[in-house]
Nucleic acid binder design. Sequence first.
DNA 1: AATTATGTCAACCGCCCATAG
DNA 2: GCTATGGGCGGTTGACATAAT
Length: 298
Amino acid sequence: MGRSPCCEKAHTNKGAWTKEEDQRLIDYIRAHGEGCWRSLPKSAGLLRCGKSCRLRWINYLRPDLKRGNFTEEEDELIIKLHGLLGNKWSLIAGRLPGRTDNEIKNYWNTHIKRKLISRGVDPQTHRPLKEIAGANAAASHLDFRNSSPPSLPVAAGISVVNNQPNNNAHNFATLQPKTESVEDANCTSSGTTTEEEPPQLQHRQQQQQQQHQHRQEVREISELNLELSVGLGPFQAESTRLSFGNTAESKLQQVPFQSAMVAQAVCLCCHLGFQSNGLCGNCQNSNGFYRYYRPLDS
DNA sequence: AATTATGTCAACCGCCCATAG
DNA sequence: GCTATGGGCGGTTGACATAAT
């Protein structure tokens, strides 16, 4: 049984919004604030679906939207965050004040993908294309297709630390956007399955389970205290530093590149003035750059 | 100038999660 | 615990603009 439609589609406008509709929506939200989107259209005198109103407001009419071209720093931040989070546009947008998930998603698909390819980096995995090609040749049975799989922090130049106590769940694996299991990849790339029908059902169920698990992980990640530190250099020698739990931290401290990277890490939030109080508390101004000074193993 | 190809991005769709009843 | 509902998200579509032929 499917869900009932979110609104009476027969009596709603679709397509581009008119200036008059925009003004009605703006006026209504100014007067009443963002409330129940379902009832808003009727109250505001709009022949639109509530969802449509919400989208229009969030993606276009909100007064705090930045609009205009993305800066180089924003580009790099998006790339780093995508390397860490995959296609979690809302999470990425949460780290870019004044930008919407839709805007970032479009920008990624139209600009950044191409940019990464021109750099010789695979936009999905954030690994060198040569490496990908080599890996494909060596292990052609793995097929991630549309997924955004092994986006290891290592590959993206990202270090990860967990500050939250009792959070044992986070490790590299939890940071990687997941879609298909290796078994699934084996299945799909070969183009055949050993058994046709039951495996398909199983596959579907497995996918649903994985999707559920992934969402759970994304929720957990989104609850973490994210401290971003992105270097201004092109794609290396800096880090996007995230805060996670002690267990993950201790594991990650075994990664040799980490301390050197953190020593050079530049806090983009502070550098760009995203921190309302000027400094995030973990960095200091050094030669004009807000650099992290807290050692990782403290 | 007309036609076709390509790029951009606002808007929509369908699904899932959280939550109130 | 179950169901209905609203909100939110990611993926996709399609209209429009611009470039190329």
